[in-house]
Design a protein around this nucleic acid. Structure first.
Lengths: 198, 198
DNA sequence: ATAATATTTGGAACGCGTTCTATATTAATG
DNA sequence: CATTAATATAGAACGCGTTCCAAATATTAT
């Protein structure tokens, strides 16, 4: 498999660098002017390349959004961790994290829509929410908290998944259907936690 | 307040008729060719009017989508009711409805995206999911089922809201993040029900 | 240098949701 | 009839995500 003539493919480092450069600019625009401003043409102008060049490095726009997701999730995690510092007991810590989780997504409904509602029907590809190891970690933090509550044998995975999806559901409902008089977010979270803490 | 000269405004009946006519065509297109095919220009062609005329009757596309939501929710309700026929016990009925609810949204992920993820970031208006009385009824059915389980005094509203949002959350997660190895949907639903049935 | 290959670029194009403007068309009052 | 107001229509325009294509450019082996 001797190298043939011609320009060699970019190294993986080059590809990653270009991708993260675009991601960085996308992040800047999103934070400064919101999601509407993050367009392919605008992004190309910011990064200093032709609009079409981006398509050589990304599958499409949703592919770029992952960089925004990662940033938002990191922000959320540090928010939860910050409030968690002053909490001691195992079940209290789980409760605190859950309430912080909900509070974050309600206080930042634009972020919520970005992360959980960006790959919708309008997009043809319906690309899935691809979770990397790092992205996953932001959610799996709940596993550790649940384990602290249940040191004995216990189906931690199922409890974690139920809690996470339940919390996301509460945030989704309160964000997208604000006209409906939902019960208090704190109360609903506590009720949901009943199924985990027992 | 004597009527001035000029053409009178359309009657409310006329307005409603035109709206439902458009809604009907939107429904036909959606069912036949999926969401991508439902475009304003296409819709105008189907209904036989100019594309701009629609904007005189609707705030925008999301406003039209409500007709699709209503149809999908009706479909879901009858699906749940059908499976509920053969179930007797109060808690068994609540479980059945919950599992049917989840199953429906997983079997029809396109419908799920349409109903719960259509007003996303990409749309500028971020119009909220406006629930009419009829739309609401499809969800409030869970209240009755919970009441059957808890004849004594019990915060039915909070239980209902927690259950509904939790179920929607499970559906959202499994639909949008299929790569993550979520726990079994049935198991998660049962776990969620633990917090309601106690 | 020359040839070969990878990549970037520019521009046009498509359909989309949406806004705007100018021009009918309709149906009432005077 | 003419006037007047509500509505409908046509068409252009904007920016969007995306696809296609031809031309230019960069980098390597020969």
């Amino acid at each position: 498999m001797a190298r043939t003539a011609g320009r060699p493919p970019r190294s993986k480092a080059e590809i990653l660098e270009f991708r993260s450069k675009i991601g960085k600019h996308a992040l800047e625009i999103y934070r400064a002017e919101g999601f509407e401003a993050v367009s392919m043409r605008r992004l190309a102008k910011a990064v200093g390349c032709a609009p079409m060049t981006i398509y050589a490095h990304f599958d499409g726009k949703t592919d770029i959004l992952r960089y925004l997701w990662a940033d938002v999730l990191t922000d959320m995690s540090s928010d939860i961790a910050e409030k968690l510092k002053s909490v001691a007991g195992p079940s209290e810590r789980l409760q605190s994290a859950s309430h912080s989780f909900i509070a974050y997504w309600i206080d930042h409904s634009d972020h919520f829509r970005l992360v959980f509602m960006s790959n919708d029907v309008t997009r043809a590809d319906v690309s899935t929410f691809l979770m990397g190891e790092d992205t996953l970690a932001h959610f799996l933090m709940f596993s550790d908290l649940i384990r602290e509550v249940h040191p004995e044998e216990h189906d931690v995975k199922m409890s974690t998944d139920t809690l996470i999806s339940g919390l996301i559901g509460i945030a989704l409902c309160m964000n997208t259907m604000p006209d409906y008089p939902w019960a208090d977010a704190t109360s609903m979270t506590n009720q949901l936690l009943l199924s985990i803490i027992v």
